[in-house]
Structure formats: C-alpha cells, structure tokens
C-alpha cells in the first residue's frame, strides 16, 4: 500500500494555502490529519499531484467563543476538542461524539475540519453539525463564504466545497440554555464507523419539549437532518407516542447501504434505536 508521487506544499497562511489550491485546482488536495486522505492515497483511490499541508497554519487552529457562537478552527484536532474547557462548558455533545471517533492515536491528529469536510458519510461530526445548526466558513480565491452544514452535503464525498476552496472554521451557535443532549452510536468495535448513530438536542419547558434537533450518521450517502422527527417531539411531553412518531419519521428518511455492519433494514432500525436512546439520555440531561 504505497501512494503515488506528488509535490508537497506547506503554506504558513490561509491565503497562501488558498492560492495554492487555486493554482492547482482539482490536482490539489489539502491535508490536515491525513487519516482519511492518506489511506485513500495508499489504495490509489486518490492520487493528488499536489498535497497542501495545512499543519503549519496557526490561524486554522483553536477554539474560541465569539458572542453566542463557538468557533472551531478547521485543523483543531479531536483531541484538542476533547480537552477544551470552552467546549466542555458550552457544547459537551461535541466531546461525547469525538470520544466515539476512531481511536486515541487518530484523535490526536484527526481534525474536526477534515471530519466535516471530506464528505464521508461514515464520519460522525457532519450529522452533529447539522443537528447543532453549524455553519462552515469556506475561503477561496474569490473570498469567503459561509455554508450551513445542513446545505453542505450533496452525496458521498460530494459537498458544496469547490475546487480551490478551503474550509477554515466551523461556527456553532450556542444551543438554547438548558438543552439536553446525546450522541448515540452503535458500532462493531473501537475504530469502526457507525452502524447507525443519532445526535439529539432538546429542551424541555414545563414538562413539554420546546425545542428539538435531530440528525443521523451513516444511514444514507450524506448525514441526515431529521427535521420531521424533531417536529414530532416539539410540543410533546416526550411520551411514547411522540417518540414513536419521531423514530418512524427518522427511519423513513434513511437509505443506508447494506454492508458488513448489516443489511439496510437493520441499519435503518438501528438508526431508530439509537435515536430512541439518545432522546432518553437527552431528556435526562435537559434542565
């Protein structure tokens, strides 16, 4: 498993990186942690002629709070996310999710930006970002734009990111105060992609659900925002019938592949089971 040859670039600024991406167009790939791209290159399923290493661009790193928004630099690693007090106090669901990604070594180098940007439906962060209503900041030769996570994913490995564009940061609005949260993932072992997973944010007000957001991982060729499922919860007391309705609505939008994790029917059902469990845990956590 040996990758093909390429030229290596190590820009120090975002502008430099964007310029290189613009210059080489589809022959170039940006690399951060590399744990998605390098295996593809070793299998020769990807053969970029130019590799643009984002590792030395300080501006792409770090976690901060900007008013009611949490900003995560694209090359922030999962390990940095897990260790961040800002995330712990504002968006603990990110830590719960990151802990379920891959294994310790990969979390040291795997980046949040890479996880959301490469379009692999197996990745966990995209559905979570949809659930949280995050925006992705993309920078290209013609300037910067923002694309909602909910609009970003087109098909497996196809996203709104254009050739020459770079994901620079992820902006996550603070969830409503008192929100309960949970990310439930069924997998075969540590390091596996989800058989199915569900991200849930919900808020209770006077015993009724006043806000809910739900998204699903790896049960379609993109992450799936389960808007109808969330709607089924809002206004309810999270009683059995409301949850049943949410689960049915969520299962209805899945279209998983049959693979070693199980046939499509199983994975659809597991999306429902994960959702049911995530709702239960989120409910317990809601203030």
């Amino acid at each position: 498993m040996i990758p093909g040859s390429f030229d290596y670039h190590r820009p120090k600024t975002v502008d430099e990186a964007v310029a290189l991406l613009g210059q080489y167009g589809e022959e170039a790939r940006a690399i951060a942690g590399g744990h998605s791209l390098i295996p593809m290159m070793k299998l020769r399923l990807a053969a970029p002629e130019h590799l643009i290493d984002l590792g030395k661009i300080e501006a792409l790193r770090g976690i901060s709070r900007d008013g009611d928004t949490i900003v995560i630099g694209a090359t922030t690693t999962q390990a940095e996310l897990i260790a961040s007090p800002v995330i712990a106090s504002n968006l603990p669901i990110l830590i719960e999710t990151a802990m379920l990604i891959a294994d310790p070594q990969i979390r040291y180098v795997g980046t949040v930006g890479g996880n959301v940007a490469n379009g692999d439906p197996g990745n966990d962060m995209p559905a979570l970002m949809q659930c949280l209503g995050a925006d992705y900041v993309l920078k290209g030769a013609s300037g910067e734009r923002s694309v909602a996570a909910r609009d970003f994913y087109e098909a497996a490995y196809f996203t709104a990111l254009e050739d020459g564009e770079l994901l620079t940061s992820i902006r996550i609005p603070l969830p409503p105060a008192g929100c309960g949260w949970a990310y439930e993932k069924l997998k075969r072992k540590v390091g596996d992609y989800a058989t199915a997973a569900a991200a849930v944010m919900l808020k209770l007000h006077g015993g009724a659900c006043s806000f809910a957001s739900i998204a699903l991982t790896n049960v379609g060729d993109t992450p799936l925002l389960a808007a109808e499922a969330a709607e089924a919860l809002v206004g309810s007391s999270l009683d059995k019938s409301a949850i049943d309705a949410a689960v049915a609505a969520a299962e209805a939008i899945t279209n998983p592949a049959s693979d070693g994790r199980g046939p499509a029917e199983y994975r659809t059902r597991m999306a429902g089971v994960m959702l049911r469990r995530a709702i239960a845990r989120a409910k317990n956590r809601a203030a």
Partner: peptide, 16 residues
Amino acid sequence: VTTASLMDFFLPTAVE
C-alpha cells in the same frame, strides 16, 4: 472479498 481490511475484519481491541 468484502472483509480485507482491519476495519471490516474483526480483531477486537482491548475495549471489546
């Protein structure tokens, strides 16, 4: 053959 990597061929980790 659909199980020719250690993603799909089950070798348990210390956790499992």
